[in-house]
């Protein structure tokens, strides 16, 4: 007899040790997320996968599933909190969707659509951040970084390179690159690295491939991310 919990009223089976996110994804039920990627250990930093269990909010990617729990992932209250978190991410960086090659296939954007976010709402910080085009095959636009640390984790855990790290703290937190000059081109990074293919936004992009897909046919143009799934799942097709 397998164990199960309720997610928005629907029974989700799970095995001991699975998180709410693991079990939901396995059952084909979408919970929005940005810093989570099933290939890596749960991180819990973006907070977009917030769900409510009996009045307590937890991140679905880190909370263990337990028998009989009732999880709310779709109430207006939860969606409103997610929208606020997404809006914070949008005002923190410089997310100029009309000028971004990732637009239409961007997980940040798609999750914002899913959560019903229409505008960034808060006051923009308009930080001044550089673009690093020093690498022959890959460009890094720090304006679009949301500090999910997926590239940090991929480079460290799968590529065995430790090319990336997070430096600073608070709003000064930022992605840094391990090379003598601090530039990507001087690092051991390669376009074949896993870290080149996990970014949920347009912060890390392959060069020479901009705007390949016509508007209307891009990943999230026709159907929401809850149906289409993560960028990651489609990234592999391209690689």
């Amino acid at each position: 007899m397998s164990k199960s919990f309720k997610l928005d009223g629907r029974a989700i089976p799970f095995e001991t040790g699975q998180t709410i996110m693991d079990a939901a994804l396995a059952a084909g039920v979408y919970i929005p997320h940005l810093c989570h990627n099933p290939e890596f250990a749960p991180h819990g930093s973006c907070r977009v996968c917030l769900v409510d269990i009996g009045g307590r909010q937890v991140s679905a990617c880190t909370a263990a599933a337990s028998e009989g729990m009732e999880v709310d992932s779709s109430s207006e209250a939860i969606q409103a909190t997610r929208r606020a978190i997404l809006q914070m991410l949008f005002v923190e960086g410089n997310h100029v969707c009309p000028a971004c090659e990732k637009s239409g296939a961007c997980q940040l954007q798609a999750v914002a659509y899913y959560a019903g976010m229409l505008a960034p709402h808060f006051t923009h910080f308009f930080p001044r951040r550089p673009v690093d085009a020093s690498h022959s095959d890959v460009i890094i636009d720090f304006n679009r970084c949301i500090l999910c640390e997926l590239c940090v984790r991929a480079s460290r855990d799968l590529d065995g390179k430790r090319v990336f790290a997070i430096s600073g703290r608070g709003l000064e937190s930022h992605l840094v690159i391990d090379s003598p000059s601090g530039l990507l081109g001087d690092s051991s990074f390669a376009v074949g690295d896993k870290a080149a293919h996990v970014c949920p936004t347009g912060a890390i992009l392959p060069k020479g491939r901009g705007y390949e897909t016509p508007i209307g046919e891009r990943l999230y143009d026709r159907e929401p991310i809850s149906i289409v799934g993560d960028v990651r799942a489609h990234e592999e097709e391209v690689v």
Partner: peptide
């Protein structure tokens, strides 16, 4: 986009 978040013109804020 420009009314909503400054859009392309706001790229001069860099």
């Amino acid at each position: 986009a420009c009314a909503v978040n400054g859009g392309i013109p706001a790229m001069r804020n860099q």
